[in-house]
Design a protein around this nucleic acid. Sequence first.
DNA 1: CAGTATCCTCGAGGATACTG
DNA 2: CAGTATCCTCGAGGATACTG
Lengths: 148, 148
Amino acid sequence: MNHAALESGVPGSSIARTLDLIGDRWTLLVLRAVFRGRHRFTELQRDLGIARNLLTDRLHRLVDNGILERVPYQERPVRHEYRLTDMGRDLSPALIAFMQWGDRWCTDGPPPTVLVHDACGTPIEHTVRCPSCDDVLDPREIASRDNG
Amino acid sequence: MNHAALESGVPGSSIARTLDLIGDRWTLLVLRAVFRGRHRFTELQRDLGIARNLLTDRLHRLVDNGILERVPYQERPVRHEYRLTDMGRDLSPALIAFMQWGDRWCTDGPPPTVLVHDACGTPIEHTVRCPSCDDVLDPREIASRDNG
DNA sequence: CAGTATCCTCGAGGATACTG
DNA sequence: CAGTATCCTCGAGGATACTG
């Protein structure tokens, strides 16, 4: 998909722009690892089994796009680790939604990882609500409205 | 990323399995179009600007994986359209989460598309809750627990 | 440890002609 | 209309050697 196709075919799609940033084969996996507390290059590389040059590239892109930030954790020699920015942390609902979908539909056994409220240990719930009706919505009750 | 790398590097990741199904450059865009009411081959092809052989391939894979179903809408000649299954409809929270993230972080102007509760027209809200505490959770309050 | 620099392969994506 | 069949290109991903 080239950029022209994007412009003409899927104008103004937030999904398309989002895919441009994180829609490759590794970025979401890198982010998931950072969410789970892996912050250093070698940790990430070992955990994911990603090629080193690719990890370098993905981390740089994530930093350039404001999703991660590179912060020093020691001097002499200076070493950095990668932390989520607010923008990155805000990807959490999307990541969670994908995990839950995979848990529900792509496995036979119990979900390999369960997300819990750390204060009480209860598995979390992921909902779409109407703030005005105060109702949890079914996908069929959702419409899309174009601005423009 | 080959399959061996996936197995060894990211064992049991629901995200990895989900990406195997829908993690390419077009599938999510196709699904978004189906969610928005495009159900026929030519509608999808024109709207997305996707190459015809790619659209054929993506639709077949989505049908094979149980995300879409192919239902006839006329006979002589028989024609089909593509409809979401329950499995496909259940991707809605993930799609919505991505759109909202893109709306918030990848645009300057107003969001190009707003999702609304069709009964009352109010823009929807997307939350992670703890069903036991009945609280909306911040990403920092979420922990992940591995099942062995 | 945390990368950078090279080189290579293979397959995803695309253009286009053809068909019941 | 709704595809299938071919052929091609280019870039994502990967292996590996090197470095402050």
